[in-house]
Design a protein around this nucleic acid. Structure first.
Lengths: 127, 127
DNA sequence: CGGTATCCCTCCCGATACTG
DNA sequence: CAGTATCGGGAGGGATACCG
């Protein structure tokens, strides 16, 4: 029993660290912005690049690869010439998007409050 | 009217970019982890540092300052010796935490699915 | 104990160029 | 059009030391 308990604990720890790794992998600026703009649409690489605003060619491919690998976005390659590659959220991606939407909504609803807080804070510093 | 409409548009654009700035300011690994571990507790600097696991002294202060400035965390200094500084989430912080919790939950519930997706992806690459 | 400052180095990310 | 490779600058972030 002692050993069984130890094995369970080890599993729990592995799961925890994996969960944290997944969380921190997804919890970054570009990933979240991509998930946000994809919504329930299907976008091509160039369209995505235009929508995200500020992301470089390289960062977009890098981030899309990670998201694809984690099964958050689905990538469809149409073997035409010129090539046509389309990205859309998977089911898992859509469920993640729902929480990202919450963060976006938070940013918008707390806009004025945050601006005010910043001004207060900056004044305190000068005093 | 033309000019009124233009002014409204300008305001909307300002609000949008500010919202995006706030979003990307908060949407980073360390900020979200701090918000997550604070939950509804009050923690001291050192406790926080122990809980977040992996964060450096410098990053913790930096991130806490940003969160304090944005009115997400509240900082209480007890003028004792040695000093005692406590951090807790503000109301705004707690509402943000709810969405962060969603992301954490997502990481945990999709653990196996993501691991499987990664294995599939990695095999494809070798072929 | 908590915060600030300094140094220093890593690696992130953008710019550019080339392939299919 | 989409992706890969390479390179270089610069910010991010760690380690250390020192103040209050």
């Amino acid at each position: 029993m002692g050993t069984e308990q130890a094995a369970e604990d080890a599993d729990a720890m592995r799961a925890d660290s994996l969960a944290r790794e997944i969380f921190t992998g997804v919890a970054d600026k570009w990933s979240l912005l991509i998930i946000e703009v994809l919504r329930d649409r299907t976008l091509r690489f160039t369209e995505l690049r235009a929508e995200v605003a500020g992301i470089s060619h390289k960062m977009l491919t890098q981030t899309l690869r990670r998201l694809e690998r984690d099964g958050v976005v689905h990538r469809t390659v149409h073997p035409t010439v010129p090539p046509r590659v389309e990205y859309r959220l998977t089911d898992a991606g859509r469920s993640l998007r729902d929480t990202v939407n919450g963060m976006c909504a938070w940013s918008r609803t707390h806009l004025d409050e945050i601006e005010a807080s910043r001004h207060r804070f900056d004044e305190q510093q000068h005093a």
